[in-house]
Amino acid sequence: MSFWRKALAITRKDALSELRTKEIISSVLVFALLVILTFNFAFGANQETMKLVAPGILWVTFTFSGVLSLNRSFISEVEQDCLEGLKVCPVGREAIYVGKALGSLLFMLIIEAIALPVFALFFNLQVLSPQLVLITFLATVGFVSVGILFSALSVNTRAREMVLPILFLPIVVPVVISAVKASELALSGATWSALSSGILIILAFDAIFLVASFFTFSFVIEE
């Protein structure tokens, strides 16, 4: 119980801080909307082309927005050495990982919940299906679970904005590719059974990333 109470206290603290500063959600959301807008202009009004490229555009938007969001995730912990403040608290490093990951997941889901309808509007596609919502949720879980690990790793480096995508994107590629494939099927109106293998692959990556990140996080935040 104590583990979850402390993890949720960290999430609550991050949410409260974000409510005050609106640093992550507002800037990342603007970025996401600009990417959607740019692609919309780039591919014109051809509905066939749109259908073809939409899954890719969607996940390019979420991937780069996610990287931006993850980049900010540990910044508040570095100011005034708050991460050290957390490390001297009687709280397991794993609870810090879970608390930070839940916070980032929350921010990304909010951004995606706003970006998806905008995407639907611009691309004139039926993206608000339960299938696509589920795929987006599961892929975001995998994305954040490993992303938060690399965010903690890169936050103390000098060029952290560069380091995070360079280290993180090659690792998260399997989730992104699976999400693009599954989204393509979902957008073409595939049934749940047709989607099941794609969803299972994303779930498998989620499980692997979650377990691996959970157990390696404590090594990452030591000195």
């Binding site: 603290k13 801080s17 005050r20 508040s76 100011e79 005034q80 403040g85 001297v88």
Partner: peptide, 28 residues
Amino acid sequence: MGIVSHHTFLYNSLTAFENLDFYSRMYD
């Protein structure tokens, strides 16, 4: 242990109360 360092370990965007409330949760 209570630790006072060169850095305050406090979150600038939160109020004094919110910071102390957060740490009181961390220390039960």
